[in-house]
Amino acid sequence: MSDEIKKVNGIDEGFDEISEYFCDARPSPVSPSANRIVRNFQNWAQANSIFILGFGTGCGAIELRPLFTARYDVSRYGLFPRPTPRQSSLFIIGGYASIKTMKRIIRSYEQIQNPKFVMGLGSCTVNGGMYWDSYNTINRLDHYIPVDVYVAGCMPRPESLIAGFDRLKELIMEGKAEGANTYAENFDWYKNNQKKIIKNWNMPEYNW
């Protein structure tokens, strides 16, 4: 599998990209602060400054753009687009996810730092939507990465998305949006599910 990557990137012989660039350590859950006041304060900060990584996998992503325009303007609520997974905390899956896309979703998800939240946008992420019997699109997103909020609809309007953001903020404030820790605790189950559909796993086991 690493041979294939080497060939694509044209890197010298004997250079193992995966061991060189990526860590093979398993993720470990990091519990939130034990002090109640500090924890609440951190949750408040997390809820009021959410950096969004929008992943336009399907048609749902078309409903993300109006959110940043004059009509809906989510920057009022402290939500900003951030095009890099390292800095963002909310990962929005915009619609159906094919198997090939799932690879990218998993890699991007694992690169986000610990308090990370996932929003499934559209019916396709809930139960497959209109692609429920397709050979190539997943049915339930929460079997591959932990999902905090689903916004149902085909397509959901930007107003529904804003309602979803409100719900997510409530969850963060209550300290219930612990998707990253869930992922780390049930790492084997998630990896099994991911590997069941991704047959040629030509990427690192865990790419932080």
């Binding site: 860590c23 990091v30 939130p32 304060f41 951190q42 900060a45 997390q46 009021n48 400054s49 402290g78 800095q87 905390s89 730092q113 610990n114 308090p115 990253a180 932080w208």
Partner: peptide
């Protein structure tokens, strides 16, 4: 200010 507090309250860094 909130952005700085939020980035400081991220639990992991590499």
């Amino acid at each position: 200010y909130i952005n700085i507090l939020k980035t400081l309250s991220m639990r992991t860094a590499l």
